[in-house]
């Protein structure tokens, strides 16, 4: 089973370097970290080197932030082939709408932030296009007073829609510092107090890992289509239901 993953903004988008975030996440019990810097503040770090050094998975992600769907569409086209996980910075109705209708987008980040809202139309679209909706816990962990009450109300609304339409989702604290990270058990405990079930929070943290595994498989050179890969069946270490395609290269055609 995949372990828990968390997604963070590292330097220059946040105040901590990728390595510092990853080391802290590892000490909290995470098995992976998705770097989710915004497109205008990308971290040029060799994530594989950090992963090897620290011993947990580190994933190159990117959060597309744009003023309009047209602009975002260009960014998505640009960045999709280069990054393993592609998020769209939600928080306005146009951008939320844009993100949930794109098969190329993995995650709609914090849809309820600012003026953003979510409804049944977007929920159905997200489920249809396989776009994960993010439950952003930053409003619970790092806001106070009225803003926090609003964030809790928004989370509730989003949760009800996600449950009803069976929308895929991820959970994150949307941290901009390694100090914003909290362990999986702490997040599950917080989730339970605000109306989530333990399993929901844990599934949301694991979903990052599923997403990463799927995207890595799809972009691997052996991949043909779901369930079909190049190469001989018996040579595969993980022969779980994958048919082989015996064509082309090795017969010398």
């Amino acid at each position: 089973m995949t372990g828990f993953y968390e997604a963070v903004h590292a330097r220059p988008d946040g105040e901590s370097t990728v390595r510092r975030c990853v080391e802290h996440a590892a000490s909290l019990g995470y098995e992976g970290v998705v770097v989710r810097n915004h497109g205008d503040a990308r971290a040029d770090v060799d994530v594989d080197a950090v992963a090897d050094a620290v011993g947990i998975d580190v994933v190159d992600g990117l959060e597309v932030r744009a003023n309009s769907p047209e602009q975002a569409s260009g960014y998505v086209g640009n960045y999709r082939p280069k990054y393993t996980v592609l998020l769209v910075h939600g928080g306005t109705n146009e951008m939320n709408r844009f993100a949930v209708e794109q098969d190329r987008v993995d995650v709609l980040a914090h849809p309820m932030r600012g003026d953003g809202d979510f409804n049944h139309v977007l929920a159905k679209a997200a489920a249809e296009h396989g776009v994960r909706v993010e439950f952003d816990l930053s409003g619970v962990l790092r806001a106070t007073g009225g803003r926090r009450v609003q964030a809790l109300g928004d989370l509730r609304k989003l949760r009800e829609l996600v449950e009803y339409y069976d929308v895929p989702y991820v959970v994150s604290v949307d941290g901009t510092s390694h100090r914003h990270l909290r362990g999986p058990r702490a997040l599950a405990a917080v989730g339970e107090r605000i109306g989530f079930s333990r399993e929901q929070v844990e599934d949301g943290l694991r979903e990052w890992g599923h997403l990463v595994a799927r995207n890595r498989e799809v972009t691997s050179p052996d991949y043909v289509e779901p369930g079909v890969r190049r190469g001989r069946y018996r040579d595969r270490p993980d022969t779980d239901g994958n048919r082989s395609v015996t064509d082309g290269d090795d017969s010398g055609a």
Binding site: H24, S27, L28, V140, L141, R142, S177, H178, R179, H180, L181, R182, G183, R185, A186, L187, A189, V190, E192, R193
Partner: peptide, 18 residues
């Protein structure tokens, strides 16, 4: 555990509470 997770700052310093 949940309350501890919600501590962001102590004396205006951001703290990691684990």
């Amino acid at each position: 555990r949940a309350a501890l997770a919600c501590i962001e700052t102590v004396d205006d310093a951001t703290v990691a509470v684990t």
